[in-house]
Nucleic acid binder design. Structure first.
Lengths: 191, 191
DNA sequence: GAAGATAAGTCAGTGTTGTTGACATATCTC
DNA sequence: GAGATATGTCAACAACACTGACTTATCTTC
């Protein structure tokens, strides 16, 4: 469930190619790294709750519904559809699961009785809190992590550099070395 | 393809709840917002290339393969599997598409003839460049965006605040107002 | 109060992308 | 030559998205 990208050794500092030396307007070079880091960071970020959800037979779609209903109690179906950008049919499938199993409740709208206002039940709130906890833990860890100390640069301060630090710190620690190694390899191949 | 979350009006500044007032270690409160912003930012971030890919009959899976093969020419199947964390069978389906349509080429490994080294063809590089361009554009725009100027706070400097700024700026501009409005609504409901 | 718009729910079919499990083939290593 | 490794493939299945068509309840408007 949690293999490093390549099964070999560690590596403290990267070879430091053209990474984050700019201070003016952002350049494409920084962004290239950010594209990749976003992929890895987001993957690990949703991976945490995925493991919990699997125990309940739920998936990411259920998570998204739980999250928004928990955070915005009384959300209507239409609002939820706008947020998630999925079709009514897709939403209904997972929403039905959550309602049938007692994690979400519907309540007829007061001003407009056509609407179905969505609320988490106590167990829905508990499950959501579980899911939120692991994600918050990862984010807090990333925000508190010391800035990457690259030999090629003293001060740091570029926004791209901060973003890189944050996203890198969001990645599962055990995999960071492998990802740094991979990204250094790119720096080697090109300019 | 690009509807705002709710079809109504604009809104300049948010009501400013407890957002980003901390300066010490990160708190859960900041992270709650970041969880949501990550969802919206990532959604729009992958939405750009999705539109291009659809014209070729490709999906996100094809994009990921193109991206990593383009960036790390000579990647082996095993390395790609480690990066993407999918099964051989899943990879093969999309990889076959890309090879059959001439966007990716295989080359028998030199030192180890069992390996298949992956390379982008010129058209593969061109397509990848297209996909990268729209993503870089969004990232550069986000990095260059002025910091959010919340009335409740002068200096800014919290890492959580920077992360929020970055992620908010990654969101499709036309939807930002609606998302700010949504998130302000949460601040109203709770403390 | 009837007509039309709107919010929600549902049935049926399809596509992409992921999964398992079981094997086949070529090549390397010992 | 034996066994491990890298890749490829067949078949079945699941999650989650889609389209299109239609129903029901309720609100709005004339």
């Amino acid at each position: 469930m949690n293999p490093a990208m390549t099964p070999d050794a560690e590596m403290g500092h990267q070879a430091a190619g053209e990474t984050a030396l700019t201070n003016g307007p952002a350049t494409g070079g920084d962004s290239d790294d950010l594209i990749e880091l976003l992929f890895f960071a987001y993957r690990d970020f949703v991976g945490d709750p995925d493991r919990i959800l699997a125990q309940y037979g739920f998936g990411r779609a259920h998570h998204r519904v739980l999250h928004f209903v928990d955070r915005y109690p009384g959300l209507t179906i239409a609002e939820l559809l706008d947020i998630l950008r999925i079709t009514k049919q897709s939403l209904n499938r997972v929403l039905k699961d959550l309602i049938d199993q007692g994690y979400v409740e519907q309540q007829t709208g007061t001003s407009d009785r056509r609407q179905r206002l969505l609320f988490c039940t106590p167990s829905g709130r508990a499950l959501t809190a579980d899911l939120t906890r692991v994600q918050v833990r990862r984010i807090v860890r990333a925000l508190d992590a010391p800035a990457e100390d690259e030999e090629t640069e003293g001060g740091r301060g570029t926004r791209a550099a901060s973003a890189q630090d944050f996203l890198l710190a969001m990645i599962e620690p055990a995999e960071r070395a492998a990802i740094r190694r991979l990204m250094a390899r790119r720096a080697t191949v090109r300019a």
